[in-house]
Amino acid sequence: MTQKMHIKLTVNGEDREFLAEPRELLIYALRETLNITGPHVGCETSHCGACTITLNGKSVKSCTMFVAQANGAEITTIEGLGSPDSLHVLQEAFKEHHGLQCGFCTPGMITRASKLLEENPTPTEEEVRFGMAGNICRCTGYQNIVKSILAAANELNASKEAAQ
């Protein structure tokens, strides 16, 4: 049995400290230790992207990172993007454009999309599809996810223009 490590993370703006074995995958630390159960586990081969979070400004599959590696990191999960009372633009758009059905891929989808729009605020449909290619969905056929993300991009750009 390896010794547990003292882990510090900033998750959705809050400092969290706990003990974990180095081999513990970040997704399990989030879900089981910190009770942040939005990010999901859909595979064990790093394909599906249901566990996607933002870590130090990168879209990361948290099933493919040890909690030890993430020590000291700043993390945003779906829980940090919006709240039921005040949805993130992407959450609102996914709701409006039927970008989800079972909802299992949605936290990873929206977290990834938030980073995509940060890096490319005016993506084409093709760029959205390519930029979301690390996230698999079994329900929607992707069409409405693409619509949702393009709508959110328009919304964000319109509010940016209005602010200027």
Binding site: G49, S59, R112
Partner: peptide, 9 residues
Amino acid sequence: IADPQVRYM
């Protein structure tokens, strides 16, 4: 190579 998330890491 791979997908966006994998390419960040």
